[in-house]
Amino acid sequence: MTDRAEKPRLAVFKFTSCSGCQLPFLNMETEILDLAESIEVAYFAMAGASQPGPYDLAFVEGGISCQEDARRIRKVREESRILVAIGNCAVYGGPQALRNFLPLEELKRAVYPQPELIHCFPTCQGIADYVSVDGFLNGCPVDHGHLQDYIVSVMLGKAPEVSTRSVCLECKMKENVCLIVAEGVACMGVLTGSGCGALCPSFDRGCYGCFGPSADPNLKSFANLCRELGLTEEEIHRKFRYIVNNAEAFREEAERHVPQPVES
């Protein structure tokens, strides 16, 4: 049962993103030696590996934001047997997908002194909008435990399973006191998939929804809760138009809470 075939070739690619989802690989301090023993890190720019394909398992960080991204992700797809989107940007488009909801030219002019030099798509999307994707690991950044499970599963020839647990369960296992119940904070943990270890609620900050919508998020009930807690429609809108703004469930919920134009 321990037939160890040739070491699988691993690749890590970056697209439009902050590079934060590559760090969990480098942070696997104790496991990294084991990892190097069982797999070949063939491409990982941040770690100095840049061998050509093909690759057995490619993790992709970052959204697709311009023509060059789109061309490159198609090439990565061709070269990779298993292609996995990691993190909010590769899965949903990332925080920068906020631009999807605003006119591009106006934004360029507001941000850059020479907007004519910027050549990008009007939207930033997850990679699945451009290529077929074999797996999705959410997070901002992705969880290193999820990454490890995924890699080990592939090595064992098993379809990886990603749990449908909510952030709430991570809070409960840490015996955090619920911020919604005790503090009246509109914490998004009830809508959000687990993986972060309830990082924000552990520091008394409501969940921002980094890991994206859970398996069956009750958005309507959450909006009602927000109203009961005194949030305005604009504030509810902003909760969903934030870090994970381009996941379908959050995107559509934001649209249901359109900020009213301020009368002048």
């Binding site: 909510s166 709430c168 369960l169 009830v190 069956d216």
Partner: peptide, 13 residues
């Protein structure tokens, strides 16, 4: 069930 978040807090405690 219209209100329920399905978060499993109830069962976890």
């Amino acid at each position: 069930s219209d209100k329920c978040f399905g978060c499993a807090n109830c069962t976890s405690v």
